[in-house]
């Protein structure tokens, strides 16, 4: 019994870490520009697919990963510069549609440049499972968890200790005021998109050995990341991580104890319940509306 529960938790936490990384990507962009980037999932796809094809081309794994992450970062900047910045005064829904257009475009590009096949990226350090308390864990699961922790720590450091990080926070709080004190807000926005894309690509690479990768893998992961971000409260980093973990764990527990048919519905029921009682998610700030 206990071994089963442990197994569900292992799986749930690994899944949750993936969702949390996607949710952090949403949060970064949301904070800087109040845009919900529906193309966030595509950065995971680009990370995974690009790593696979660079490996195929004979590059060693670390270099393949580095190049893929840089590619995603560049695409993130391009997305901001060519799609979001020109439409900055548009409605919320309009921006959503633009990012949806961008995600379809990136998917279309990926299936042209690469292919429509499913690919397996080799595990970073073997496939031999570790047995802990009767439950098993793959070395790759540890990689996912480890990288997630490192990414989170790096982000905390970035936002609390560096000038650039603080500039992003300032821009998110009040763009006009930030501009007045000499922050280059356009540069900051681009940086936020690049960071978010890099984050997505890192997540995409590190989960690819477990989940495989294909040109259309970003749709579902992106959606789950959005759910995680909303559970935690949009724009809140801690909320994104907690939301991701809640989502991953409830999903596996639901599959294990309730019904695998309805496990995908459970997170949505949870989010509806949370929003009924806490309209700004778990950690979201109370919003005040200016008249």
């Amino acid at each position: 019994m206990l071994a089963e529960l442990l197994q569900y938790l292992f799986t749930g936490v690994t899944l949750g870490a993936t969702y949390a990384l996607v949710a952090l990507g949403f949060t970064l962009i949301y904070n800087a520009s109040h845009v919900i980037n529906f193309a966030q999932g595509e950065f995971l796809m680009i990370g995974g697919m690009s790593t696979f094809f660079l490996l195929e081309a004979g590059l060693p794994l670390p270099i393949a990963i580095l190049l893929s992450v840089l590619l995603a970062g560049a695409l993130g900047i391009a997305l901001q510069k060519f799609a979001i910045a020109p439409a900055k005064n548009a409605d919320v829904v309009t921006l959503i549609i633009i990012t949806i257009g961008a995600s379809i475009f990136l998917r279309g590009l990926a299936q042209l440049v690469w292919d429509k096949e499913i690919h397996a990226v080799p595990a970073f350090s073997g496939d031999t499972p570790l047995v802990i308390g009767g439950a098993t864990l793959l070395p790759q699961n540890l990689w996912v968890l480890g990288i997630s922790v490192i990414v989170v720590l790096a982000l905390v450091y970035f936002f609390t200790r560096t000038l650039t990080g603080k500039a992003i926070l300032a821009t998110s709080m009040n763009a006009d005021a930030a501009k007045l004190v000499g922050i280059k807000t356009q540069f900051i926005l681009m940086l936020a998109f690049a960071l978010s894309a890099i984050l997505g690509a890192v997540a995409g690479v590190v989960v690819a050995p477990i989940t495989f990768t294909a040109y259309d893998i970003g749709i579902m992961l992106g959606l789950k990341g959005f759910v995680a971000a909303a559970i935690g409260g949009l724009g809140n980093g801690v909320g994104a991580i907690v939301g991701g973990l809640i989502l991953g764990v409830t999903e596996t527990l639901a599959a294990g104890y309730i019904s695998s048919d309805y496990k995908d519905a459970v997170p949505f029921v949870i989010i509806l319940l949370i929003l009924f009682f806490l309209p700004n998610g778990l950690f979201g700030s109370r919003s005040t509306e200016r008249v």
């Binding site: 799609a83 548009a90 549609i97 257009g101 990136l106 279309g108 042209l112």
Partner: peptide, 20 residues
Amino acid sequence: QEFEMLAFGLILMVTMIFMP
């Protein structure tokens, strides 16, 4: 054919950017 998805995404983006 295989350019369908690319074209659709592009049209959607460009229209919304220039005609918000």
